[in-house]
Design a protein around this nucleic acid. Sequence first.
DNA 1: CGGCGAGTTGAAGCCTCTCAATTGCTGTGG
DNA 2: CCACAGCAATTGAGAGGCTTCAACTCGCCG
Lengths: 252, 252
Amino acid sequence: MHGGLARPASRRPRPDTRVCSQCEGREFNMCRDLDAVELAQVKAISTPLHLDAGATLIEEAAPADHAFNLTHGVAKAFKLLPDGRCQVTGFFTAGDFIGLSRDGLYPYSVVALTPLSLCRFERPRLRPLLDECPKLGRQLLRMMTDDLLIAQDQMLLLGRRTARERVICFLLMQSDRAVRQHRPADLIDLPMTRGDIGDYLGLTIETVSRTITQLKGEGLIALKGHHALAILEMDRLMEESGRDMGLGDPVV
Amino acid sequence: MHGGLARPASRRPRPDTRVCSQCEGREFNMCRDLDAVELAQVKAISTPLHLDAGATLIEEAAPADHAFNLTHGVAKAFKLLPDGRCQVTGFFTAGDFIGLSRDGLYPYSVVALTPLSLCRFERPRLRPLLDECPKLGRQLLRMMTDDLLIAQDQMLLLGRRTARERVICFLLMQSDRAVRQHRPADLIDLPMTRGDIGDYLGLTIETVSRTITQLKGEGLIALKGHHALAILEMDRLMEESGRDMGLGDPVV
DNA sequence: CGGCGAGTTGAAGCCTCTCAATTGCTGTGG
DNA sequence: CCACAGCAATTGAGAGGCTTCAACTCGCCG
């Protein structure tokens, strides 16, 4: 289905996801600060899991029995309205923690956009570990703070930005993510469909497509097939995004 | 400015906010599970603070030196785009924790809608307390999970709901909050302006006003001045909101 | 009682959506 | 390896919901 999308990542030999030291997400995930002993404790309650592209990891409103560390691949989280309207609340990549819940039910569905590798935990067994190992809790708190701040940025985007601004912001987000993962800032791959992007940005497929075409026409970006593109004019995009660019000194 | 809005709350004698046992937010805030000794530890690093309606508690992008427990009143948090477009990311009430940050800067501004009472903490002194007292961290994690889930619901609202649905959802949110605070579900007071509501829902003042007028015209609600209203047809509103109403058994 | 800000109401315009048809990938099977 | 099938993406035309701009009304506080 979306199988081919994983190509760029799967060309390099995939690391053995059973070995924490080879975990792609190690740099960011909840285990980041753990030493060998603590790591072993976490590993003791985790089972490896692999999913094909298109497979459903989590069903919205199902009992939240498990939590996951994503170690490889890209997934989308989304919520549905009864009539089928869809909001993608975020995309997960290596290092992300999946499976928060408050009321014992998953708040959203999660579907694999590329083949996934994960560490699976039974939530009941995760709790005591959190008490034993405060580092884990602290890192989790940090990650949740990040997520919350990102969510608030997204509210601003969904509530107040124009379609063009939304698409530009999205491209810059992907660029940021690429940099975080030690890939070049101007080469972006898009494992998700235009529909996913639209559902993430609160737009329709057509508007996303038209906007991307427009940006291409203005020479700001160049398409590399449907699932990758290059940013040609990073500065112009940054200007138009209206994002904070790390407040440079005022132009006194 | 918004002074009058505090009336309903300030008519009952305001509890002494220096005494934790009288704290309005005790039921929900981060101190909830603490015993007397731990409470004393928290109190030792906190200073009481009072703000007038309209006053700014936090300025977006200012150094995040403090964190706060809101013990009385209502405040709004919002983010601004360079051209003045505003997104209200949430409203704070008694019990809420204010002052998250990741990069040392506040991610949003916070302005008092009614007179506020708060406990103020210096963030550097809060960190060690978190290590000492795991209950604090756990409750904070719970509260952040709530906030994140609420933020994701808000994304769905901003990205995919119509203006009418947004306003209805907003009213039902206020109703939920009223219930949580042991007030009747069908009497809602609105300490915020129509502009604040619009900035929260991603709509203009005019659209909010028109929609409320429409709901009134249909007999679903009744206005009690500009800053309070009654819900007359809770069921109809629930239906139209498209919110989960706690999945009743399927109609086989 | 009077003024001012907040809220309401109206008319016109625009951005985005909807519906529909065409084009172009992408991965497969011959 | 190439051609084809099927879905994704693009493109176009028209409609509609929300915004914008503007005038008016209401209600609160001095």
